[in-house]
Design a protein around this nucleic acid. Structure first.
Lengths: 232, 232
DNA sequence: AAACAGAATTCTGTATGCAGCATGCTTGCG
DNA sequence: CGCAAGCATGCTGCATACAGAATTCTGTTT
């Protein structure tokens, strides 16, 4: 509020340190991300009941903030709350995964359409650069950087939509599926097809062809399902 | 699990009481819906800090379950958490509302496409019946039942998609906007246009014309924005 | 008179303790 | 020997108590 009225310390810090004010991650946030990661990495397997006492002791926090974090994660759909029985790591059926991927494709399609309208040429070039670096990693068969760049491109398109609610919903669904995708079912055989998909996507974005971009993203997601469906 | 192996008590209860097992609404759930309603009805205005002590005393619960409910609502995006400063009722800018409506239209469009594939004829007839009753309320100028039936039709279309994640995301966004729509900006002048939109929507659904249904739903949402934009 | 420093108050964040319910085991009976 | 009822244990749900941070008020200083 009215930061210009006290220009000294605030602007000095602002100029010298573009990182802004020091924001320690609150314990709440720390626990949430920690537990979420534990679920994604499979340390907490789907279907397992979460023991508040043990988990709290293991994380070095008392039950109260841990319980609050569990409620938070339950709202994301990663956990299920059975009254009197505590929190259980949610199991996703193959249909759940498929349905989620369909919606995810639709959301990215929406984002693509909006990006064609709202993105600047410079921003699109940045996505192209991400893509080029991804291709580089692909030719080197360097899987982990490839995977991260892949995710980064999708996130970038969402960002270009400049639609916060859209990004939010996408993030929720993405979070649910990260567990599935983390395992990395994607066999190297079909790797090439995914790269080809991405080439289409970037081309459509550069041409600002909204319809083509949307259908390319949806198709990409459909093929992603084909890649992981066998792993259930 | 294997209910048929012990047919006596279980099936007896199941046959006699179709309501299933007794499910008391947990206090957690009760508080969540209560506070959410308070926000929707404007009792807790956007921007206000939530005072845990007072609100807890008012609801007759201690701070612990209340705090858990607040975290839950924060995950839905209805509240914001400022570390050290507690929870604040989120304010939505006009852009937030517009962006949300765009996404909402897109989600309903997706649902419409899926409904055209998956819905049975009987289910579509049920939606038509909802529509007819809505028209009836419209001709009587009976606003509240009209509003509820209107919401019901949209919910029904989502349901016909038979895609749980889609319904879930729609519910979140819908929940955020209910506060805005609850006020009831919709002037009676433009009422007729909304009814005409719905007529289109039902017709497209009955024809199972996915493209037409999707665009009708998106357009309907776009016009909904025109109706409420003046009220900020 | 305005502004700053300091103290007091108040509220959030966390820990702990207790009550109620769910679960697993043991024992008694058919 | 099988089954069921009762009992014991352990966990969740909630309340309360305490510590630390934020805010506000007051008194002093320039």
């Amino acid at each position: 509020m009215d930061r210009d009225s006290t220009p000294r310390a605030a602007d000095l810090a602002g100029d010298l340190d573009p990182r802004g004010p020091i924001a320690r991650p609150s314990l709440h946030e720390a626990i949430v991300t920690r537990v979420r990661d534990m679920i994604i990495e499979g340390i907490l397997a789907p279907g397992t009941r979460i023991h508040e006492g043990n988990l709290g002791k293991e994380l070095g926090v008392s039950r109260t903030p841990l319980r609050e974090a569990l409620k938070f994660l339950a709202s994301e759909g990663i956990l299920e709350l059975s009254p009197g029985r505590g929190a259980v790591v949610r199991q996703f059926t193959p249909k759940d995964v498929h349905d989620s991927l369909i919606v995810l494709g639709g959301l990215e399609g929406m984002a693509g359409r909006l990006a064609c309208q709202h993105a600047t040429d410079a921003e699109i070039r940045e996505v192209r650069q991400l893509h080029d670096r991804m291709i580089e990693m692909y030719t080197k068969r360097d899987r982990l950087p490839y995977f991260k760049l892949n995710q980064g491109i999708h996130a970038a398109i969402l960002h270009l939509s400049k639609n916060e609610p859209l990004m939010y919903l996408h993030g929720i669904l993405q979070g649910r599926l990260r567990r599935i995708r983390y395992i990395g079912h994607e066999g190297p055989e079909k790797w090439a097809a995914a790269v080809a998909d991405h080439e289409d996507i970037i081309a459509a974005l550069e041409a600002r062809d909204a319809d083509r971009l949307a259908s390319a993203l949806a198709a990409h997601m459909e093929r992603s399902w084909d890649r992981i469906r066998d792993g259930l």
